[in-house]
Computed example of a mutant assay.
Amino acid sequence: MEVAVAAGVSGIAADCGGLLTCATCHVMVAQPFAALLPAADGEECAMLAFTATPATPSSRLSCQIILNAELDGLTVELPASQY
């Protein structure tokens, strides 16, 4: 999320700054990367229930994705609307 915000990626508002309180950094993670991520915890799942665009099985809050070498090349799809 921080990388996307710093790069000016439109569609990732990240209004809460990564505090897991707004869901405006909702993304759908492409395979095979979605399978490489740890499962979303209860707090993240609860926030995904309130996204403007319905969550999918590959939905994540980008503020909860910790980048590492295994995720090099990670691609995501942005929802139609974050608001």
Rank of each mutant, 00 (worst) to 15 (best):
D41A: 09
H26G: 00
S10M: 07
A39P: 13
S81F: 06
H26S: 01
S58Q: 13
E44Q: 06
E77N: 06
D72N: 15
G73F: 09
L78C: 04
Q82P: 00
A80K: 10
A69G: 06
V5K: 11
A69P: 02
M47Y: 01
A23N: 08
L61N: 00
D15A: 14
I12G: 00
L74M: 15
L78N: 01
A46D: 15
A55R: 14
L37Y: 09
T24S: 02
A52N: 09
E77G: 01
T53S: 15
L19C: 07
G42Y: 01
E2Q: 14
E43Q: 15
E43I: 12
R60A: 01
V3C: 08
A46N: 15
N68G: 08
F33C: 07
V5D: 01
A34F: 10
G17L: 12
Q64H: 04
P32V: 11
A52E: 13
N68M: 02
S59R: 01
C63E: 06
Y83K: 12
G11E: 08
F50R: 14
E44A: 00
A39C: 12
M28Q: 09
A14Y: 02
L20K: 12
T21K: 13
E43S: 13
A39L: 15
A4I: 06
G17Y: 07
D41W: 11
C25H: 05
V76M: 07
I12Y: 03
M1R: 03
S10C: 05
G17E: 07
Q31Y: 09
A80T: 05
P79N: 07
C63R: 09
L61W: 05
T51W: 02
T21R: 13
V29F: 02
A39H: 15
P32D: 10
I65H: 03
T75H: 07
P38I: 13
C45H: 11
C45A: 14
V76C: 11
L19G: 05
E2N: 11
G8D: 06
